[in-house]
């Protein structure tokens, strides 16, 4: 039995000026992987490649042990729940009609479970989808994604637009989903705090390249933040500084704890800080180019 929900090797895909380059990552079953990246980093492109909705230029993608986009991939999708960044139900349909469409779409559709989700999430079954708030639309997307009892959940910015309480409920639901060791979740989000709560693995994507993909706890253990005068950084061993932010008052640097001399005052780093340091703190050219893209 395959122990990985997703296995990607040397994936390449070019779309106009943007490209995903030699991306490899593995999501083991029973785990939650957070995909972090700024707008345009390639998160949605990667997710659509995983779903076989885009044709890859090179490399391989296996989902639940089958080649993505292959002939029998339709049956694999029976075991995947997807919540895209925009839930594409027709505006005039309501949750009840959505349920009747999905009942005829998924072989394992559980109508009672769907109705339970609608009730738990306080979603009015007869209200047209166009009258739902963004948060309600997302909740309906999540309810649909979970009601056919999938093995793999793929969520593209699924918690965006939810109020803090609903976000917490959704995040808890995803955590509960992976209690079953055969289940896995791939979730992309700008809200790194949510990912920090629930993820086992973190993948940082920047301009189509995977900056890193590691276990979250190991990552947070490996890196720390060092605040010191600018000249103190020069004396550190090569490779110890992964990123830095300079200010008139000194330097904040993302450092690898294992490469630092003993006794240096290193504070813990959050995932958000880690990501910002990696993207913005890797040299002036990189920073300038990122800011150009980000604020374009």
């Amino acid at each position: 039995m395959n122990e990985n929900a997703i296995e990607i090797h040397d994936l390449t895909k070019k779309r106009g000026k943007f490209s995903i380059q030699d991306l490899s990552l593995t999501l083991p079953k029973g785990c939650i992987m957070g995909l972090v990246g700024e707008n345009g980093a390639g998160k949605t492109t990667l997710i659509r490649l995983i779903l076989g909705a885009l044709q890859k230029d090179g490399g391989s993608i296996a989902v639940l042990g089958r080649e993505s986009g292959g002939k029998d991939f339709r049956s694999v999708k029976e075991d995947i729940g997807v919540v895209p960044d925009e839930i594409g139900f027709p505006y005039s349909m309501n949750a009840k009609l959505v349920g009747s469409v999905m009942r005829r779409t998924y072989k394992k559709w559980d109508e009672a479970l769907y109705e339970k989700y609608l009730a738990d999430m306080s979603l009015p079954a007869s209200q047209p989808f166009k009258d739902y708030s963004r948060g309600m639309k997302m909740k309906l997307g999540i309810a649909v994604a979970l009601s056919h009892r999938p093995q793999l959940l793929i969520l593209d910015e699924a918690t965006n637009g939810l109020d803090p309480v609903a976000r917490d409920e959704a995040v808890t639901a995803f955590g509960e989903f992976t209690r079953d060791e055969g289940h896995a979740v791939l979730i992309s989000s700008h809200i790194v705090g949510d990912l920090e709560k629930i993820c086992d693995y973190i993948a940082f994507l920047h301009k189509g390249k995977l900056l890193l993909c590691e276990e979250k706890d190991a990552l947070l253990e490996k890196y720390g933040v060092l605040r010191c005068p600018k000249e103190s950084l020069a004396g550190l061993p090569e490779g110890a500084v992964a990123g830095k932010r300079e200010s008139p008052y000194g330097v904040e640097a993302l450092v690898r704890r294992d490469l630092l001399p003993e006794g240096m005052p290193v504070s813990n780093v959050s995932l958000e800080e880690l990501f910002v340091f990696m993207v913005k703190g890797n040299g002036a050219a990189e920073t300038a180019s990122f800011e150009e893209d980000f604020f374009a």
Partner: peptide, 8 residues
């Protein structure tokens, strides 16, 4: 785009 995630 949404339907691409469904088993069709």
């Amino acid at each position: 785009e949404y339907a691409d995630g469904l088993p069709y």
